[in-house]
Design a protein around this nucleic acid. Structure first.
Length: 458
RNA sequence: GGCCACGUGGCGGAGUGGUGACGCAGCGGACUGCAAAUCCGUAUACCCCGGUUCGAUUCCGGGCGUGGCCUCCA
């Protein structure tokens, strides 16, 4: 099959051709672990999980390396550590914050049905690689030391700005930042900064200090994927400056003409039509959503919009997602999908720049067939698996879905029996009254040819 | 202020230079004592103004609107 991806470098859909089909390599920027991840953070995780699954399908599960880092050096982490554990030594406090937050994050994304990445490197484990890269940059004249800082010399790179398509002139014209006095150029960014006694730090040729944010991803991608790799992903907001600076660091350090061949960026997320922010009070974490919705519904809701489009996150959308999953699970039932080939249209849709809405439409299209036979049901299951959907049995899904319901089953059965008697006597007023009582209890009943069944109201 | 993206029916959301997306909701019908669920059927759209074209929702220009980046931010 052909896979095309919209490449931010070329601003068009490019046919994907890996450097080495035996080892397809993808890097995605992961979280900074200082607090629960919000639903906007979940978007790249889910989107690139689908891409990971598709690559595994095309090249083989053992021929794809997916690296998603954990940033555990950051001033926000320090602040959090001081706030939450003021009585502990700083290093220990930081370790607690990052360990706990990383665990929360991994629980969250697992609940969203995401496969674990091949490698989940931590910044603190790659300080040596960062120092090594920075030394090379200083030696080659792309970085300089000033007042204990090491800064990347942006004008030293002729084609800086290629990813975001900004010229240096443009950026300087629009710059609003206050320029630190030790910078040679306003655009220069920090590779290494000195740490005070109250800050985490590592010994380096430039004294005790800590890395700048951008160098972390350059070092981790280098160590796990090499100097040049296939796909680099992340949110569109990271395009500038983070990804631009990663490119500058990696290319100038390694002397390569590209860092990654395909740069893939997902669009932004809004909540109920508004920008998500703490001040608006619509800031919503994955963790909170998982208390009210199955993770799979969050996942489907995310994939109903193409990854490059802006997405508006709404309760209504989540309700529709649950309904779609109900319908699919109801058909799939005990199918495992084993041995079944995914639907060609689903595959074609995903191969077309990860067109998940089109793939989901194809899944709906399989519903009619799936009513007919096991083969089609199995194909539905196998097709959904490419999107990371329908991983459970139908029983587990419906049990999970109805989790919130707290209903006395014996009482329900007694009322249903009473209603059956009333119906037999053709006392429909009484039968309807009982149904209203059940409805008030949150129970929906269905009269079928084999009797009356019930379930928690949806 | 500079750069960029987006604007499709009641809602969500693909796509295309000239035929049906799809889903949810709605409406009609079947089934039901009546409902629910299910099944069958069905109406409604391409922000505005120009241009190119035999023909534009689709291409080009302008406008308006929404959002993003330029500063930590997914």
């Amino acid at each position: 099959m052909t896979l095309t991806l919209y490449n931010t470098l070329t601003r068009q859909k490019d046919v994907f051709e890996p450097i080495d089909p035996q080892n397809v390599r993808m890097y995605v920027c992961g979280p900074t672990v200082y607090d629960y991840a919000h639903i906007g953070n979940a978007r790249p995780v889910i989107v690139f999980d689908v891409l990971f699954r598709l690559l595994r399908h095309v090249y083989g599960a053992d021929h794809v390396t997916y690296v998603r880092n954990i940033t555990d050096v950051d001033d926000k982490i320090n602040a959090r550590a001081l706030r939450d554990h003021p009585d502990l030594p700083l290093n220990e406090a930081i370790a607690r914050v990052t360990a706990e937050t990383a665990r929360q994050y991994q629980d969250d994304v697992a609940a969203l049905g995401c496969l674990a990445p091949t490698v989940e490197p931590r910044a603190t484990e790659h300080i040596g690689a960062m120092v090594e890269m920075i030394e090379k940059l200083v030696a080659s004249g792309h970085a300089y030391v000033a007042e204990g800082h090491v800064l990347f010399d942006v004008p030293s790179m002729q084609d800086y700005g290629g990813l975001s398509r900004r010229s240096l002139d443009e950026m300087q014209a629009g710059a609003r930042v206050e320029v630190a006095p030790y910078k040679k150029d306003a655009m220069d960014f920090v590779l290494w900064k000195p740490s005070g006694a109250e800050e985490p730090g590592w010994e380096s040729p430039w004294g005790r200090g800590r890395p700048g944010w951008h160098i972390e991803c350059s070092a981790m991608s280098w160590k796990h994927l090499g100097e040049v790799f296939d796909i680099h992903g992340g949110g569109i907001d990271l395009q500038f400056p983070h990804h631009e600076n990663e490119i500058a660091q990696s290319r100038c350090s390694h002397g390569t003409s590209v860092m990654a061949n395909y740069w893939v960026h997902n669009g932004f997320l809004q909540v109920e039509g508004e920008k998500m922010s703490k001040s608006l009070g619509n800031f919503v974490t994955i963790h909170e959503l998982l208390a009210d919705w199955p993770g799979e519904a969050l996942r489907l809701n995310m994939l109903r919009t193409h990854y490059r489009q802006p997405i508006d996150w709404t309760v209504k959308g989540l309700e529709e997602s649950v309904k779609a999953l109900d319908a699919w699970y109801d058909l799939v039932r005990e199918e495992t999908g084993e041995g079944a080939e995914p639907d060609p249209e689903v595959l074609a849709a995903l191969g077309d720049d990860l067109n998940t809405p089109r793939a989901i439409a194809a899944l709906h299209g399989l519903r009619a067939d799936a009513k007919g036979g096991r083969g089609a049901r199995s194909r539905l299951k196998a097709s959904a698996a490419l999107l990371g959907l329908l991983p459970e049995t139908a029983d587990d899904w419906f049990a999970r879905r109805d989790l919130g319901a707290d209903i006395d089953a014996d009482a329900v059965e007694a009322l249903i029996a009473a209603r059956a008697a009333a119906r037999k006597d053709r006392d429909f007023a009484e039968a309807d009254r009982i149904r209203d009582d059940l409805d008030a209890m949150g129970v929906a009943i269905m009269d079928g040819p084999t009797g009356t069944t019930w379930e928690p109201k949806r």
